[in-house]
Design a protein around this nucleic acid. Structure first.
Lengths: 125, 125
DNA sequence: TAACTGTATATAATAAATATACACAGATTA
DNA sequence: TAATCTGTGTATATTTATTATATACAGTTA
């Protein structure tokens, strides 16, 4: 597995680890039930405290990307698309509300918002 | 003008002042070019330091809701819808990006996102 | 000039974020 | 079974950001 720490980046170490592993799981680079490096091993490699790697793994577990087995190790969770979907839907709904709030303060119509969303989606392709 | 501070609310004082005045401006309760209470006067009323009211006013000015004239006072800015629009568009774009990011991690299609937005807009009516 | 405006700089007090050490408990394996 | 892996739990140090403040200053008005 590949994790690179950039000490100058400003983003905290645990966050860099979390983000990199997460994207490797999402991209499929890390397969389901594949074992991750141990929090101590990874910490040693990166020359940081294992508490920091632990924190990254905790975040990943909390979000359902990995699961841990006491005294054995941490593994890539089977993709529970439904669970992930449920959680993300809530977050997305919150953000949509915030957008409508912003739109209301500057007379931006619903049509225009939808146009913006469509545009952003097309950009991604 | 009406501003109420809730010491138990957890949100900082300056933020409460900022939010309340902002919404009064947006709602039209405070008219364009109307003079706001002086930062010192308001601070006295609320029994807080005027630095705190100053901060609230600074935020309002930064976002274009009010303007200040040295040694005279602070006034409600003429509604610059275009400016507000520009600023909010940026914020909205950022939020849309975040939404697409979330959607990508759970295989939520562009169509579905647009449906969610449309639904939220209809709810508002 | 007295009394009001807002400004600028410095600072104190808290709270949140980040990273850590160390003692512990279960699993594995030589 | 002893050595050595694995993750856990509790406590803590350090740093950074947030929040609120005091005080001295400068322009305006009556």
């Amino acid at each position: 597995m590949n994790v690179l720490i950039d000490n100058l980046s400003g983003t905290p170490i645990y966050d860099q680890i979390y983000t990199q592993i997460k994207s490797q799981i999402i991209s499929g680079e890390l397969k389901e039930n594949e074992m991750l490096p141990s929090i101590r091993g990874l910490a040693k490699d990166l020359k940081i405290s294992f508490i920091t790697t632990k924190r990254a793994y905790e975040e990943l577990e909390k979000e359902g990307f990995i699961y841990t087995v006491q005294a054995k190790g941490c593994y890539v969770a089977p993709k529970n698309v439904e669970l992930l979907r449920e959680e993300n839907l809530k977050k997305i709904e919150t953000k949509i509300e915030e957008i409508l709030q912003l739109a209301a303060t500057c007379n931006l119509s619903g049509e225009e918002i939808i146009e913006m969303v469509k545009f952003a989606i097309e950009e991604k392709l």
